[in-house]
Computed example of a mutant assay.
Amino acid sequence: MALRGPKVWLWRWRRNPLKRRGDRVEAWVVLGVWMLTVFTGLLAGTTVSRSVEDGLARERAEWRPLVARLAERAPGAAPANGRVSRTETVWATARWTAADGSGHSGQLRVPAGSAVGAPVTVWTDPEGRQVTRPVTESQACVRASLIGGAAGLCAAAVPWVAGRSLRGRLERRRIDQWDAEWARFGPMWGRTTG
């Protein structure tokens, strides 16, 4: 690792008679890598975020609730107070008819002790298959932002890692050049005239 002095802003772009060609190349590499990293991250993040948000909006538009009827009595006893909490629901088989007239059945969460034929809401896709309840607009926005942010970070990591690797190679090459020059001129400094 090279010896580094105090941090000076934009030192790569300042005029210096000791600056070598390798220093200028490294300056452009650093600038290019940062620009590519930011551009790649933003492009991937916004693209994925829009895609996720569009998919969730399509689900909200296409998925519809239908009334299903229980095909069997739900296990357990109905609560005495009539209020059903999430912990007092059980899985039971229900049947429903899709918009195209085809019959479907599936497992749904229903209140414990529900009778056969009790109505239950089931969310279905256009083909009548059972799906989960679609997310709200605000939930979709949060989900799209999180997924887009993660995708942007992952995509931005690729040029950043490649740039770090290239910069490391340039730095090793510069150190090797310094070693070669030191080996050539270093012994001259120890000689005395006289």
Rank of each mutant, 00 (worst) to 15 (best):
M1G: 15
M1F: 05
L3Q: 07
L3R: 04
G5Y: 05
P6Y: 11
K7I: 10
K7Y: 13
V8R: 10
W9M: 05
W11S: 11
R12C: 01
R14M: 11
R21V: 14
W28A: 10
W28H: 06
W28M: 10
V29C: 05
V30S: 11
G32R: 07
G32V: 11
W34V: 10
M35D: 01
L36N: 07
L36C: 14
V38F: 10
T40N: 09
L42V: 14
L43I: 08
V48H: 01
S49H: 05
R50D: 13
R50W: 10
A57W: 00
R58G: 00
E59H: 06
R60W: 02
R64E: 06
V67Y: 00
R69Q: 08
L70K: 03
E72V: 14
E72R: 08
R73V: 07
P75A: 04
A78W: 14
V84K: 05
T93Y: 05
A94F: 00
A94K: 00
D100P: 03
S102V: 09
H104R: 12
S105H: 13
G106W: 00
G106T: 07
Q107T: 12
Q107K: 14
Q107S: 15
R109A: 10
V110I: 12
G113P: 02
A115V: 09
V116M: 03
G117P: 01
V120F: 01
V120H: 00
T121W: 01
P126S: 05
P126T: 02
E127C: 03
Q130T: 02
V131I: 06
V131K: 03
T132M: 06
R133Y: 01
P134C: 00
V135R: 13
C141Q: 12
S145L: 14
L146R: 12
G149R: 04
L153M: 15
A155N: 03
A155P: 01
V161I: 15
V161F: 15
A162R: 11
S165W: 14
R169G: 08
L170P: 00
E171M: 13
R172T: 08
R172Y: 04
I175T: 09
D176L: 12
A180L: 13
A180K: 12
E181N: 15
A183I: 08
G186W: 06
